[in-house]
Amino acid sequence: MSQRVAVVTGASSGIGAATARALAADGWHVVLGARRVDRLEALATEIGGEAFHLDVTDPASVTAFAQGLSRCDLLVNNAGGALGTTSVAEADDAEWLQMFEMNVMGTLRMTRELLPAIRSSGDGIVVNVGSIAAREPYRGGAGYNAAKHAVAAMTRVLRIELGGEPVRVSQVDPGMVETEFSIVRFGGDEARAASLYEGMDALTAEDIAETVRWIASLPARVNIDTMLVMPRDQVSAQSIHRRA
C-alpha cells in the first residue's frame, strides 16, 4: 500500500472516532481498533478504513492486531480512561490496576508491537493521548492522575530512546472534553457526568482530533513534544469558569 497508514486505538467513540475521521479526511488510510467492533465497522465503512477487534488490556489481542498490519506510519494511542473518584486512602486495587492496564500497559503494548513498522516507515509518528491529569494532580482523580503521569513519563523516555531515528513522539493532553469519558468514570451515571460541563463550553472530541491531525501533518523535521489543550473556560484542572 502506497497510502500512509494510521492506527487509532479506542476508535469506537469520542476522541478516537473523531481522530479517525480527521485523519481519513487528510488522506490517511486509517486502521481502527477497539472492543466494540460493530461501531468500528460502521466507522470504517464511513471513512474507507479498516476495523479490527482490539483490547489493549489483553496482550494476545494486541499481538494479533499488530500481526494483521502490513504497515504503520502513525500510531495514535488513544485507548484509556478513568474509573471512579476515590482517594488514595480509599483506593480500590482493582480500579487502579484496571486504569494502569488501560492507560499505561495498553500504550506500552501497542507501541512495542508497532515500533518496528513505525521505525521502518522512514517518518514514523507516535501520538499518545494523555490528559491534564498527566500534568496536574487533582482531588478525586488519584488513580487516573497516577496512570496518566506514567504515560507522560513513558512518552518522554521513548522520545529520548528514539533520538536520531526517523520517528516523532508527541503527547496531547486534553482538559475537559465532553465525551463518554465521564459517563464511564461514573459507572453510567449520565446526569452526574453532564453536571461536570454545566455552565461552561467544554472541548469536543473534534477539537482534540484536529490537534492530532495537525501534529501528523507537519514536516518530518517538526516534533511537537507535548501540547496541553483546554477550553477557554478552564484555566487549570479544577479552576473552571461557569456562567450562571
Rank of each mutant, 00 (worst) to 15 (best):
R4G: 10
A244G: 15
H241P: 00
V212R: 02
Q234R: 03
V5S: 10
V212W: 11
M1C: 00
F65A: 02
Q67M: 12
H149R: 10
F100P: 00
L97M: 14
S195W: 09
E206K: 08
I132H: 04
G187D: 13
Q234I: 12
A205H: 08
D173W: 07
A191D: 13
V229G: 07
F100N: 01
M1L: 09
S239G: 04
G27A: 02
G124R: 03
E41M: 07
P137K: 09
A220D: 05
Q3K: 07
R232W: 11
G16F: 01
D26K: 01
V31G: 00
R71G: 02
G188A: 07
R71P: 02
V157W: 13
D233F: 05
L115P: 01
R156T: 13
R119L: 15
G130C: 09
R139G: 09
F65I: 05
V172M: 05
A152T: 05
F100L: 13
G122A: 12
R39F: 10
H53A: 12
Q238T: 15
P116F: 12
M230V: 12
F186Y: 15
T211M: 15
E113T: 04
V222H: 08
A191L: 10
N103R: 00
H53G: 12
E178Y: 03
D38N: 09
D123M: 05
A24D: 06
A64W: 09
A147L: 04
L97G: 00
A133N: 12
L218A: 13
S239E: 13
G81P: 12
R119F: 04
G124V: 06
G164L: 12
M99Y: 05
I160P: 01
E50K: 02
L40P: 03
M154D: 00
L114G: 01
D189G: 09
A18I: 09
V235D: 00
L23G: 03
V129P: 04
A194K: 15
V37A: 08
E190R: 14
I125S: 10
T226K: 06
S2C: 00
